[in-house]
């Protein structure tokens, strides 16, 4: 095969990676932006989303498409519930102290991971895609499901953008993000907003997991890589910035896809890490982040 087809394939793989990464990183960025806490357990909510999707799809013994779409509803809801409960029981009691919540979310990471290991086991388990269709390109066939994942991510991102910028709920979240004390002086129940935002961030990760699990399989350690990449994305894009998250996810996803195909996945990770270092040195607030007030 010539270079051109390789490049097309690598770009498609990179876009798939970017689509999923954007959703996961957006959840992380939202939680940090509004609550000012670094959620180290975010990758585990992603993993939990995939595992619950496997349970829903395999235990209900329905048609793969029905099982998948049921999982797409049930899994984010259950993950959101777990996240909401952990926020109420742990983070709220720590009064959202930045250092204490980092330690607490590291603890949450291990608890979720080990509970899943006990209940789900150490094996990677596949979830059937809702449909199988290969699009015939001149050089190779490409899974239509992969394109569906990209399209779904774009639709979800537009939905998030609409909610954040055009609705009352988004206005409340942005006001809380900019000045939580003043927000309270205008009737915004900041405490409740924190609970819902933490759940929403985890739900975004869970949706990403359900979308990707027919391609990557569910595994109890699958949350670690996306967590690292999400941190890279939100640092480059700017914590709390939707636009920055999308741009950085595209940069990281595409470079990861292309460099992994032509060179090696390790080199792709090294370059991402170098980019983070450069951003931290020359633009610590990220490409689109607001300077510290």
């Amino acid at each position: 095969m010539d270079l051109g087809p390789f490049l097309v394939l690598a770009t498609l793989e990179g876009l798939l990676q970017a689509a999923v990464l954007t959703l996961i990183a957006l959840g992380l960025s939202l939680v940090f932006g509004v609550m000012r806490i670094v959620n180290v357990a975010h990758g585990e909510f992603y993993m939990l989303g995939a595992v619950i999707a496997w349970f829903v799809a395999s235990l209900l013994s329905l048609h793969p498409a029905v099982g998948f779409f049921l999982a797409l509803v049930i899994s984010p809801l259950l993950v959101g519930l777990v996240a909401y409960a952990s926020e109420r029981l742990i983070l709220k009691r720590l009064k959202y102290d930045p250092e204490a919540t980092i330690v607490a979310t590291i603890g949450m990471l291990y608890v979720i991971q080990q509970v899943v290991l006990i209940g789900f086991g150490p094996d990677a388990r596949p979830v059937e895609a809702p449909f199988y269709y290969r699009i015939r390109l001149p050089w190779f066939g490409y899974s239509a499901y992969n394109l569906f994942v990209m399209a779904a991510a774009v639709v979800l991102l537009i939905g998030c953008w609409y909610i954040l910028t055009r609705t009352r709920l988004g206005l409340i979240m942005r006001a809380t993000q900019f000045d939580s004390e003043t927000a309270q002086a205008f009737g915004i129940p900041v405490d409740k907003v924190y609970g819902y935002v933490f759940a929403a961030g985890a739900m975004l990760a869970a949706v990403a997991a359900v979308l990707i699990v027919p391609i990557r399989q569910a595994h109890y350690l699958m949350g670690l890589d996306p967590l690292l990449l999400s941190f890279i994305v939100v640092i480059i894009g700017g914590l709390g910035s939707l636009r920055g998250t999308v741009v950085a996810a595209l940069i990281i996803g595409l470079s990861d896809g292309i460099i992994s195909v032509f060179f090696s996945p390790t080199l792709a990770k090294m370059l991402s890490t170098l980019l983070v270092a450069l951003v931290l040195v020359f633009k610590p607030e990220g490409l689109f982040g607001a300077k510290a007030r």
């Binding site: 009352r168 942005r174 900019f178 000045d179 205008f186 009737g187 915004i188």
Partner: peptide, 25 residues
């Protein structure tokens, strides 16, 4: 409440700041 230093939601528009006030009650 008009706090010291104004404490506007500085990245929101004027209309959005006023909307926050309107939403309160």
């Amino acid at each position: 409440y008009v706090p010291q230093g104004r404490r506007l939601f500085s990245e929101l528009t004027v209309q959005e700041n006023l909307d926050i006030g309107l939403m309160t009650r």
